[in-house]
Design a protein around this nucleic acid. Structure first.
Length: 591
RNA sequence: GGGGGUGUAGCUCAGUUGGUUAGAGCGCUGGCCUGUCACGCCAGAGGCCGCGGGUUCGAGUCCCGUCACUCCCGCCA
């Protein structure tokens, strides 16, 4: 007989009744009735009820076991009587009558109960992550993550992609996020950086002729955390393809994501054909470049209705500045003064002067705005926006670039408050045609808005002849339920276009040469047109597990301060280690 | 770097306008209990009320500072 088990804790069924079984696992729960005692024994696979009474030779020992002790139990599989069958357990038709019990290891009093799923403070959960991971929910999430990754690998493989590993110790990159640095022992004063993404390596892989690459790639960025952004490290499904247009990338990636979401979405409907929305349209209709399409609200420009109207605040602003627009946020079912007032005070809480509104009842518009612009214009709005009694519409006025974030937030809030968002769906879209450059207000200069390696639409000619701020890139994002899942691009594979693009952003050829020398050289020796994308794996798993926090789908996450409370990272190192690395500390003064 | 929230028993939380001895549930320890599966019943142990200072006759409660956790802003090609 095996030293620890003949069956897992999920295996035994009424057909096993009468056989001898050996199971090992954690003591999930003890129910001690004095003359009769139950142990729910748990392992990775499930739970099996074990029972002992004074007829058992092990009874005295069984009485001593406590929650989370690890034990081995031998005994006979017995049928439960009809009235004691537990339908909630797959093994609920049987139980093991304990003949022998061996304590394999004991447990101290638990700082965090494994039984049950109440909320516990994150620092305790992280410090005792091994206990937290025993709990049903988290345990299932981590297993699901593994299955999802396996499914993604198979789907990528089936589409002809190869998985390659790229370096973890690489060079610091001047663009993008803050790097994690690793000091070099052999080269005093020099540092490696952990890759923010294998961006340049995957392009080099294409230039090296491998045609189709993917990797479940670890990425490292030294930026502050959010609920949907873990500090330090995360994983991407990194993809790159040669001899492709944007369309080819879409056709390769869309079925993988759709397939994974259908496979693991538990029947929740998934967008069959991802709509393509231009960046400019997304901003205008949804007020964000990551719209939640489950929210049916689409904003509309109603500037003309307010121009010269009796609503003097808006009319005056439109008069003074021809960049000023008025956007309408229609809210079906929001037609009560209470709701409109609630939206208005929310807006004021956001630092806005307020949120103008009209609500419709008894066949006419009500509220101060309606009164000011008059019946005719109110009716025109109702017509344009397709509203009726019981509906409302909110207005934001100003220069769109300045108010668009707020307008987007108002759209989200109205949709959420009015219960318009169907939680049980996965609504995908592509956001395309991102601007290549943007004006950096802080630096007072034009800079890359996305990725310096992207191909501008129109190529060299566009760079030479057009206003940089009007040039679009072959750059695209995938958004699901308002969460940015990935971004990608067709890359710029021509050195002369790269020099020109960097020149527009204010970097001379010597900068390009110094910072991207390796890449540049590669482009000079026959680079295929290529492009790719990199969906965020943690966010995919988070969506599929229905979690709001990334830490619920990562085995050993760091806390918001980028500390690993279990392993104690980051930690101080010995003087010897620092000496080897030629590093002298220059610590901030303690307050 | 900035803003909000939280901090009371091992854990989750309550604690009134500042007022006697700081409570409950779970867990823990002991006792009772032969069909439970959130077992039940009885008893008990367990508190630097995050930490430091202040106001007050008196502070878990008010004020200031500080620390920890968390959410958000900045940041995140």
């Amino acid at each position: 007989m095996h030293a620890y088990r003949t069956h897992t804790c999920a295996q035994l069924r009424p057909s096993d009744v009468g056989s001898q079984a050996r199971v090992s696992g954690w003591v999930h729960r003890v129910r001690d009735h004095g003359g009769l005692l139950f142990i729910d024994l748990r392992d990775h696979y499930g739970v099996t009820q074990c029972v002992a009474d004074p007829d058992s030779a092990a009874f005295a020992l069984v009485e001593k076991v406590r929650a989370e002790w690890v034990v081995r139990i031998d005994g006979e599989v017995k049928a439960r009587s009809e009235d004691t069958v537990n339908d909630k357990l797959p093994t609920g038709g049987v139980e093991i009558f304990i003949r022998e019990l061996e304590v394999l290891s004991t447990s101290e009093e638990l700082p965090l109960p494994v039984f049950g799923e109440p909320d516990y403070p994150e620092d305790i959960r992280l410090r005792y992550r091994f206990l937290d991971l025993r709990r049903d929910n988290l345990h299932a999430n981590i297993v699901q993550r593994s299955r999802i990754i396996d499914s993604i690998r198979r789907r990528m493989w089936d589409e002809g992609f190869f998985e390659f590993q790229t370096p973890i110790l690489t060079a610091s990159s001047p663009e993008g996020a803050r790097d994690f640095l690793v000091p070099s022992r052999l080269h005093p004063g020099k540092f490696y950086a952990l890759p923010q993404a294998p961006q340049q390596f995957k392009q080099l892989t294409m230039i090296a002729g491998f045609d189709r690459y993917f990797q479940i790639a670890p990425c490292f960025r030294d930026e502050d955390a959010r609920a949907d952004r873990s500090p330090g490290e995360f994983y991407q499904l990194d993809i790159e393809m040669s001899f492709v247009t944007q369309e080819d990338v879409f056709n390769a990636v869309e079925p993988v994501l759709r397939g994974v979401f259908e496979e693991f979405g538990e029947g929740r409907p998934v967008t069959q054909e991802f709509p393509r929305i231009a960046y400019a349209d997304a901003m205008r209709k949804y007020g964000t470049d990551k719209p939640d399409l489950r929210n049916p609200i689409v904003m509309e420009n109603v500037t003309d209705t307010f121009r010269g109207s009796g609503f003097k605040i808006f009319a005056g602003m439109i008069e003074k500045d021809d960049q000023v627009e008025v956007w309408a946020i229609p809210a079906k079912g929001g037609g009560s003064r209470a709701f409109c007032d609630r939206m208005n005070s929310w807006a004021q809480g956001e630092g806005q002067p307020g949120l103008g509104y009209i609500f419709f009842r008894d066949g006419e518009g009500a509220g101060p705005v309606a009164k000011n612009i008059g019946e005719e214009r109110t009716a025109a709005l109702r017509e344009q926006l397709g509203l009726g009694d019981g509906d409302a519409v909110f207005f934001v006025c100003g220069v769109p670039k300045k108010f668009v974030d707020f307008a987007g937030a108002a759209r989200t809030r109205a949709g959420t408050e009015l219960g318009m968002i169907d939680e049980s769906r996965f609504d995908f879209c592509w956001i395309v045609d991102f601007p290549m450059f943007e004006y950096d207000e802080a630096e007072k200069k034009v800079d890359f808005s996305h990725n310096p390696f992207s191909m501008p639409q129109g190529g060299m000619e566009a760079l030479e002849t057009r206003d940089p701020l009007e040039i679009l890139g072959y750059q695209y994002d995938i958004v699901c339920n308002g969460i940015e899942l990935s971004s990608g691009a067709i890359r710029n594979h021509k050195p002369e276009i790269m020099f020109k693009a960097f020149e527009i952003a204010g970097y001379g050829p010597e900068v390009v040469e110094e910072k991207f020398g390796g890449m540049l050289r590669a482009l000079q020796y026959g680079a295929p047109p290529h492009g790719g994308i990199a969906p965020g794996l943690d966010r995919i798993v988070m969506l599929l597990c229905g979690e709001e926090n990334l830490r619920e789908v990562i085995m050993f996450p760091m806390n918001q301060q980028a500390e690993d409370l279990l392993m104690g990272a980051p930690s101080e190192v010995s003087a010897r280690q620092l000496r080897d690395l030629h590093i002298q500390l220059n610590l901030p003064k303690q307050g």
